[in-house]
Amino acid sequence: MFLFIRKLDNFIISRLTFRSNRRFLDKIMIFSSYLGNGGAVWLLISAFLIAYEPYRIAGISVLLSLIVSSIVGEGIIKHYVKRIRPFKANSSINILITKPLSYSFPSGHTFSSFAAANMLHLYFNNLGIIFFILATMIAISRVYLCVHYTTDIIAGFILGITLSQILFTLINYIFIYCT
């Protein structure tokens, strides 16, 4: 099973490395990836929500999801799994962004983006699709730019959704039963 997954990951990366006349798409993917750097777009949304009292809890929840996803993903899982990135596994891959220094699994951009997007969806159901589209663009950009394998993205998605559901439940429990 793992051999099949590895072959699928490598197949997808090999198809993405043939970049001929895709400059517009390259720019979109670089920009999408940039939005996820350090959770930038999610931090901006969180700060906006925290600044407006009726949405303060939602903003704090998004911020908390970013902090916990970074600790779990970047601080724990990546150092346990130690999966090298596609461009390091294949030196013929030329990437279009600054080479990330950390490990590949799971995608931190995807983990934090889906944790934040789902948290926002849980608070603002009617706007959820916008947040999920943004998180999906960030996730796809990471594979397109050859800094992650597809399975890194899938794991980041699952972890992000799961983490945000757990945090949302805990936050609501604290505010309903402890205040």
Rank of each mutant, 00 (worst) to 15 (best):
F111N: 06
I93L: 12
S61F: 06
S113D: 06
I77R: 09
V68I: 15
V62S: 04
G75F: 08
R83H: 03
F111D: 06
K88N: 13
A58V: 08
S70C: 13
V143S: 07
I97Y: 08
L96F: 09
K99R: 13
V68T: 13
F132N: 14
A117P: 01
F87H: 07
R83A: 05
S70P: 05
N125R: 13
L127N: 12
S61R: 04
P100D: 06
K82E: 12
L63V: 03
M137C: 15
S141E: 03
L159T: 01
L96R: 09
Y103N: 10
H148I: 01
S70W: 12
P54A: 02
F105N: 01
F111K: 01
L159W: 03
D152N: 09
V147S: 00
G128T: 05
S61A: 15
I93F: 11
S112T: 13
I57Q: 14
L159Q: 02
Y55T: 15
I130A: 10
H148T: 02
T151R: 11
H148N: 08
F87G: 08
I97Q: 05
L120W: 10
P54C: 09
I67M: 10
I158Q: 03
K99M: 11
A116D: 05
A116F: 02
K88S: 11
I93C: 09
A117I: 07
Y149F: 15
L145H: 04
T150Y: 08
A117F: 00
I71E: 02
V147C: 06
L159Y: 07
K82W: 08
F157Q: 04
I158H: 00
K88F: 11
S70I: 11
L96W: 07
N125W: 14
I129C: 00
A139N: 09
V147R: 01
L64Y: 04
V81G: 07
Y144I: 07
G73F: 02
S65V: 12
I93M: 06
L134V: 15
R56K: 14
A116L: 03
I130S: 08
S113I: 00
V81Y: 00
S70A: 13
G108P: 02
I60K: 13
I76D: 06
I60F: 12
L127W: 14
G156E: 00
H148K: 02
F111H: 08
I84Y: 12
P54W: 03
L66E: 11
P86V: 10
M137S: 14
A117L: 03
T150S: 14
S113K: 05
Y144T: 03
H121E: 14
Y123E: 08
H148P: 00
G73K: 10
I84E: 15
A58Q: 05
K82M: 12
G59A: 07
L96H: 08
S91I: 11
H79N: 15
G128D: 08
L134P: 10
I153D: 04
G108C: 01
N118G: 09
A155V: 07
Y149E: 06
